[in-house]
Amino acid sequence: MAGVRYGNPKTGWEFFGTELKRLREAAGLTQQQLGSRIFCSAAYIGQFETAIRKPQLYLAEQMDIVLGTDGLLGRLCKKLVESSPYVGYFAEAVYLEGIAVTIREFATMFVPGLLQTAAYARAVCLASRPVAPEEWIENKVAARLDRGRLLDHPTKPAFWAVLDESVLRRVVGGAAVMHEQLRHLVELVQRRRIILQVLPFGAGAPALSGMLTLMTFEDAPPVAYHEGPKTGNLLDDPAAVTHCELTYDHVRAAALSPEASLTLIRSAAEDYAR
């Protein structure tokens, strides 16, 4: 896969994968043999070794037991996870953003993180932790802006988002913040960096009731990520991902066209400027 396009969170996991392969081969095991002993597929072991996917801590600890490595892989995995600025359930989703070929999102409450301005991101963080120390807020905003640099690349990943109309109407941080945020969305669309659609209130009940992210990769199966309060689920079961993709297509079909959506976003931005 291509390297990560913001920061370089993949580097540590490449080292993990190299060490895993070295230790597995030293133990005389194939990917299939190691996978069968820790109850996962040979393909998964291969994805761990090539840093396409990150193993959960319990899997790293199981590999240590099978390979007799005295907890090395578990300690390394724990260190890499703890070095991430994101909570555990979101860290792998952020990692996968950096190596995705396509990203499709549906947002019901807020502008997706990759598209947020600094002021909007700050308002969202303050809403979630109104009495948080300033340093915590600054770190969260910096991490979110770092994610947004993914879109500095002119073409990769291809990004498509459907925003519920409530995202445009909810006043996050005040009128000036909303004006800046919506103008940022317009600018991204105008330079053909992203495709945006708006699901209008008139479309009725949406097929999706919460945030959903779909990602595809050059040499790995697609995944879906959905999030709720203080929790998130990364799905890679083919049937579950296919179901999410079909549901997303239903939402996209009910949304306004990209052209009509841009007109609505511009209009909302002008309303906030008044």
Score class of each variant (00 low, 15 high):
residue 93 A to Q: 15
residue 173 G to Q: 12
residue 68 G to R: 04
residue 17 G to W: 02
residue 218 E to W: 08
residue 257 S to A: 07
residue 28 G to V: 02
residue 32 Q to S: 14
residue 86 Y to E: 13
residue 251 V to W: 14
residue 123 A to M: 06
residue 248 Y to D: 06
residue 120 Y to S: 03
residue 33 Q to R: 15
residue 238 P to R: 09
residue 51 A to I: 02
residue 218 E to C: 08
residue 163 L to N: 08
residue 242 T to V: 11
residue 185 L to C: 03
residue 235 L to D: 14
residue 167 V to M: 05
residue 217 F to I: 05
residue 115 L to K: 03
residue 28 G to S: 06
residue 157 P to I: 01
residue 104 R to K: 15
residue 215 M to W: 09
residue 43 A to W: 10
residue 164 D to R: 05
residue 265 I to P: 00
residue 80 L to Q: 00
residue 194 I to E: 02
residue 63 M to P: 00
residue 43 A to I: 11
residue 1 M to E: 10
residue 180 E to D: 12
residue 95 Y to L: 10
residue 65 I to F: 06
residue 50 T to P: 06
residue 205 A to R: 15
residue 40 C to R: 07
residue 274 R to Y: 12
residue 148 G to A: 10
residue 76 L to A: 07
residue 123 A to R: 02
residue 37 R to D: 11
residue 96 L to R: 04
residue 230 K to Y: 12
residue 164 D to Q: 12
residue 102 T to N: 15
residue 72 L to K: 14
residue 80 L to P: 00
residue 228 G to T: 09
residue 124 V to T: 07
residue 152 D to M: 04
residue 52 I to R: 13
residue 136 W to F: 13
residue 95 Y to A: 08
residue 13 W to N: 03
residue 147 R to F: 03
residue 181 Q to R: 04
residue 223 V to S: 09
residue 94 V to C: 13
residue 49 E to C: 08
residue 149 R to I: 04
residue 265 I to L: 00
residue 238 P to Q: 08
residue 35 G to H: 13
residue 132 A to K: 13
residue 260 A to K: 04
residue 50 T to A: 11
residue 68 G to P: 01
residue 44 Y to D: 12
residue 250 H to R: 15
residue 30 T to R: 14
residue 227 E to C: 06
residue 3 G to C: 10
residue 268 A to P: 01
residue 196 L to E: 12
residue 222 P to G: 08
residue 12 G to F: 03
residue 122 R to L: 03
residue 54 K to H: 13
residue 152 D to Q: 07
residue 123 A to I: 02
residue 190 Q to R: 15
residue 43 A to F: 11
residue 260 A to N: 05
residue 216 T to M: 06
residue 130 P to I: 13
residue 189 V to W: 02
residue 214 L to W: 03
residue 193 R to L: 08
residue 13 W to P: 02
residue 205 A to M: 15
residue 68 G to D: 05
residue 21 K to T: 11
residue 8 N to D: 15
residue 175 A to C: 06
residue 259 E to T: 08
residue 202 G to R: 13
residue 58 Y to C: 06
residue 270 E to S: 07
residue 246 L to N: 09
residue 156 K to R: 10
residue 208 L to C: 09
residue 101 V to T: 14
residue 237 D to C: 09
residue 15 F to I: 10
residue 159 F to A: 02
residue 151 L to A: 05
residue 192 R to P: 07
residue 258 P to S: 05
residue 64 D to I: 02
residue 164 D to C: 11
residue 34 L to G: 11
residue 80 L to Y: 00
residue 220 A to H: 01
residue 173 G to H: 06
residue 108 T to R: 11
residue 112 P to G: 15
residue 12 G to I: 05
residue 266 R to E: 15
residue 167 V to D: 02
residue 107 A to D: 12
residue 207 A to E: 13
residue 84 S to D: 12
residue 18 T to D: 11
residue 112 P to H: 10
residue 20 L to N: 04
residue 205 A to N: 14
residue 134 E to H: 05
residue 64 D to N: 11
residue 159 F to T: 01
residue 222 P to C: 08
residue 144 R to G: 01
residue 260 A to W: 00
residue 120 Y to I: 01
residue 61 E to W: 00
residue 62 Q to V: 05
residue 261 S to L: 00
residue 122 R to W: 02
residue 89 Y to A: 07
residue 264 L to C: 00
residue 40 C to F: 06
residue 6 Y to I: 04
